[in-house]
Simulated assay, not measured.
Amino acid sequence: MKPQQQSATMSGERAKTLNELEAQFTAISARAQTLVGSGGKELCMKPPSPGSWSVTECLQHLNISADSYFPIWQQVIANAAPRKSEMNAPYQADFWGRLLSWILEPPARIRKKTVLHLEPTERGEIEVVLDEFVERQERIIGTLRRCRGRAIDQVKIASPVDSRIRYSIWSSFLVNAAHERRHLWQAEQALQKLRNGK
């Protein structure tokens, strides 16, 4: 891994290439597995305070969020035009991609209530939820690989969270990576509070 790629992976810096973005989702998957492994079943299933999400619920939310993007990506990526730039040349984030990824990177800069259809609805077993999370990261990476050679920064999609927001396919991946890091950070904070008895 090149130094600049490693920096983007570890710091949450906005990715500029498909390789960097793929490395970020790989790192996110590993981070979630480390988190659950260190917390154990009992702590991961327990919310740190009334009304707060447990580690399990944070991961469930991310699974639901990812599922809202897969049908969109499947439909639009296949229709994206061939890219005129070099295969792994930097992509450009648009306005919404830059703004939302900045807002979502932890620690949270702006807190907003999660829309109802993306809230975790049931408390599943942490082992199952983690397996589902890792599987979704693999699907995201597979989707990224289908983007190679395509002008995904030139094709707009409507956000499944708020249809008034339209950003490029490329920006949608940036937003997803930042969103996942935000809720993994939230899960880590929840685990720390439980360990400290707060």
Rank of each mutant, 00 (worst) to 15 (best):
F133V: 01
D153A: 05
A190Y: 02
A78Y: 09
R123D: 10
A66D: 04
V129E: 00
E13Y: 11
A93W: 00
W96V: 06
A190W: 02
E20G: 04
I126V: 13
R145F: 02
R195E: 02
V76S: 02
A66V: 01
G142Y: 03
S7C: 14
F70G: 00
W102F: 15
V161W: 02
R109L: 15
F133H: 06
R148Q: 12
R148T: 09
R14L: 13
M1F: 13
K16V: 08
W96M: 08
E22K: 04
K112G: 15
S52F: 12
R146L: 06
A32G: 05
V155T: 14
P160K: 07
V76E: 05
E180W: 04
P3K: 09
K41C: 10
P50K: 10
R145Q: 11
V115Q: 15
V55Q: 02
A151R: 00
P82L: 03
K16G: 13
A27W: 01
G51N: 08
S159G: 08
P47E: 01
G124E: 11
S68G: 09
D67I: 02
T9R: 11
L118A: 12
S172D: 00
D131A: 14
A177Q: 04
V36C: 07
A8C: 09
E119M: 15
Q92D: 13
L21Q: 05
T143K: 00
F70Y: 07
F133Y: 09
E125G: 13
E119L: 14
E13D: 14
W102A: 13
A93T: 05
G39N: 07
S29G: 12
R14M: 12
N79H: 15
R111E: 14
I103K: 11
I165T: 08
I77Y: 08
L59S: 00
Q24L: 04
R145S: 03
L184M: 07
S49P: 07
Q186V: 05
Q5L: 13
R146T: 01
S11W: 08
E125M: 11
S65A: 15
I77Q: 03
I77H: 06
L144T: 00
A78C: 12
S7T: 14
P48V: 00
A78L: 14
V161K: 05
E180I: 03
S11E: 11
W185N: 09
A190M: 00
Q5F: 12
P107Y: 06
C147M: 06
H183G: 06
N176R: 08
D67F: 01
I165G: 07
T121V: 14
N176T: 01
L191H: 10
V55R: 04
R181D: 06
A8Q: 06
P50W: 01
R166P: 07
Q5E: 13
Q5C: 12
I64D: 02
V161F: 07
S159M: 04
W185G: 05
G39C: 12
R123G: 14
M10K: 14
C58I: 07
G97V: 00
G51E: 01
Q92A: 15
M45F: 10
P50M: 05
A89M: 10
